[in-house]
Design a protein around this nucleic acid. Structure first.
Lengths: 215, 215
DNA sequence: GGGGGATACGTACACCGTACGTCCCCTCGA
DNA sequence: TCGAGGGGACGTACGGTGTACGTATCCCCC
């Protein structure tokens, strides 16, 4: 009747589906089991515990992003492409993004993007120290950007809710926030992201590549 | 006997203490009540629900950081100072950092740093659009950096646990990760942060300040 | 045919957030 | 001085959570 024979992959898929439909808080073993039309404890035949299941979710989402890396392209284009591939996560699985970002993945799914990024940077002439530094810089920026995009972190409007209802929270205490509130309210995530990536690429390209740390 | 008369502030303080001692997962209304030597439901006389309590925690931690802003200093120094002030959160309250970063605070505690940053950037000659852009860039970087520092996000070792036990996860699949594993394993958070801040300041200082977006 | 391993599932336990009702004490008006 | 009223402390209870454990069923291989 239920056709498919229940598997880790099906469980993870159901979890992702549930998260995207109702948010991460809606995820419970009972709920997932119900979603699959299955007893709660049956899940534990395929997944050791909830934590591992969530790791599976993060891994699956991360594996889904498509890196179309062209080794012959200029390194700046390759970096751009890799950064954009990451942003796809926020687009394809907004409510799972927090999970992907906050779980340490030591599997190949987690290591592959790192490997690619390092290879790209090395091929651009960065030595190990500078390649790792640049990688960390990009990751920090990307993580922060994605969290803003999916609404974990604020865009810094003086309260979106209040704006709609017309309440002005500002007063004379926050003149700048008040004056720029129309700019703070809107946020073109793609434009912001592209701006940041460009800024970082340019800044890093200019940097001396083999000298010791600047600080 | 128990002296102090129980208040929102005392509850929030107990929550922060508990989080820093045992992690965010250890926080429960029952646990906090026990910590204060008080009945569980007594908490609800001072806090509407757990969510609001966690907002209170985020707000309290955020309010604790000290901005020593010198309006006469060069704007680059002011930006540096403000960025470092944020990093203090990760230092003073590592296990609460995720909470601070992930909760939308529409109170003055949340708006004050934004106001300061915008004022600084405006005084440096940035127009509204560029000031907001720069602010968002910095916030994304800082959020990403703090999450790495407190261990939410990985530093990208090929598994710290495995390194200790001597298991080499690499193989020929991840040559770069493998070759740079000693660099990836270590992470001087302060140095990385300072490097990033410097890079961003320099990149932004060079940028045209009144032209439209570059993209 | 029979034994054994993988799978499905029910029950049970400890814990969670919190709605509700009760009790006590402190304060204020008469 | 007394009575009423209100606010804080707290116990109980309900519906939810993750998962340990025991059991029943199926299929495959000897």
């Amino acid at each position: 009747m239920t056709s498919e024979p229940l598997s880790r992959a099906r469980i993870v898929a159901a979890a992702i589906d549930l998260i995207e439909r109702e948010g991460a808080d809606a995820v419970s073993m009972r709920r997932i089991a119900a979603e699959l039309g299955v007893g709660v404890m049956s899940l534990y035949n395929h997944v050791p515990n909830k934590d591992a299941l969530l790791n599976g979710v993060a891994e699956a989402v991360l594996s889904e992003i498509e890196f179309t890396d062209d080794p012959d392209a200029h390194w700046t284009d390759r970096v751009r492409m890799q950064a954009r591939a990451f942003r796809q996560i926020a687009h394809d699985h907004p409510r799972s993004t927090m999970l992907v970002v906050s779980r340490q993945l030591h599997s190949s799914a987690g290591l592959l993007p790192v490997e690619r990024a390092l290879a790209t940077l090395r091929s651009a002439g960065f030595d190990g120290v500078h390649a790792v530094r640049a990688l960390r810089m990009f990751i920090a920026f990307i993580v922060g950007s994605l969290l803003r995009e999916v609404g974990v972190t604020p865009t810094f409007a003086p309260d979106h809710q209040h704006m709609v209802t017309g309440v002005e929270v500002d007063a004379t205490l926050f003149p700048e926030v008040s004056a720029l509130s129309s700019l703070l309210n809107r946020c073109d995530h793609e434009a912001e992201f592209e701006f940041g990536v460009e800024l970082l690429i340019q800044a890093i390209a200019v940097h001396p590549k083999r000298r010791e740390g600047t600080r």
